[in-house]
Amino acid sequence: MSQVELRRRPSRTVPATVVALVLLVVTAAITVASVSRLLDGTWPTWALDPAGSVARQTWGSAVVVTTGAVLLVVGVVLLLAAVLPGRRSGISVAYTVENAEASEVVITPRGVARLAAAAADEVDGVERVDVSASKGAVRVVVSTSLREDVDAVSAAVQQSVQSRLDVLGTGPVCQVETRVRVKES
């Protein structure tokens, strides 16, 4: 069995929303024009004018060629958005699964941030923790009311978070950046 890289696909909500809104508008316009035709026996003028201008175009006209090119580009972009996988959204963890031929364990950046926040919160003197994580770095901002021990708190938070992440095996993938804010009393 070959080793498969774990990939999580993004939700692709923007292309899906654009396509859905365009289809909704076109369908609503066609429905309103059809109901008007059924009730009055004639097509509404707002539907006839664009239809007449489209009917007067030739295949080689600039409007038809430009519209076709734009629709082609939009179609290719939407097709690629649906088919191509998204970028990796997890951080690999050095953990092996027993009884598996090939395995990869990953943790989301949000999970890494929660682990870092828990490690920083255990340090004495820390009153509040704000953590953000990306694939390359973990940024920890802690608040403390200890004015004279700011450097000691910063070093302790750095050590605590780094040791917690080292247990995961993420190693140098996650660089830890620590800032300490002193709360005014």
Rank of each mutant, 00 (worst) to 15 (best):
S154M: 11
R179I: 00
R181I: 11
N99D: 15
D130A: 06
R88V: 12
R181P: 07
V19F: 13
G86H: 08
V65M: 05
A94P: 01
L78P: 04
A137Q: 07
D166F: 01
P50C: 01
D49N: 00
V141W: 01
G136A: 12
R110L: 09
A20E: 10
S134M: 01
A94L: 13
A137W: 03
W59S: 04
R114M: 15
T67H: 12
A116H: 02
V141C: 05
V63P: 10
V167M: 01
V73T: 11
K183D: 15
V65N: 02
V25I: 15
Q159P: 04
T42D: 14
L48V: 04
D124R: 11
A117H: 01
R37I: 00
T66L: 06
S154A: 14
V138C: 03
G90N: 06
T45I: 12
V73P: 13
V182I: 13
D130S: 07
I30E: 12
V141P: 05
V123M: 07
G86L: 08
L84Y: 12
A156D: 11
W46P: 09
G90Q: 06
V74S: 08
E127Q: 03
V54I: 11
D130M: 04
T170P: 06
L165C: 00
V142F: 02
V138S: 04
A116E: 04
V180D: 12
R8N: 11
V83D: 08
G52R: 11
R87W: 02
T170R: 02
V129A: 02
Q57I: 00
V123F: 07
G90D: 07
E104L: 13
V74N: 08
V138D: 04
A62G: 04
G111D: 06
W43D: 14
A51Y: 12
S36Q: 14
Q159K: 13
A62Y: 01
G86D: 05
G52V: 06
V157Q: 01
A28R: 07
A118T: 05
A116N: 03
E104C: 08
D166W: 00
R7D: 10
S160F: 06
D49S: 02
E148P: 01
G90P: 02
T31D: 09
V161R: 00
A155T: 14
V26S: 12
V4H: 04
E98M: 11
V176G: 07
A156M: 00
G75M: 03
D124P: 15
L115I: 10
R7P: 05
Y95Q: 12
V97W: 08
A133V: 04
T144P: 06
Y95R: 10
N99R: 13
V141I: 07
P172T: 01
A29S: 15
A117R: 04
L72E: 10
T178N: 05
Q175M: 07
R9D: 13
D124E: 15
S2F: 02
V22N: 14
G171W: 00
V167A: 05
A152R: 05
S145R: 08
V4Y: 02
S11K: 15
A94V: 10
T108G: 06
S61Y: 04
P44M: 09
E177N: 09
L21T: 15
V106K: 08
V161S: 00
S154D: 14
V74F: 09
A81N: 04
D151L: 12
E148K: 05
L21F: 13
L79A: 11
A55P: 02
A94S: 14
L71V: 03
P50F: 02
V32I: 13
Q159L: 15
S89E: 14
S11T: 15
R12N: 15
G60F: 09
P50D: 03
R179C: 03
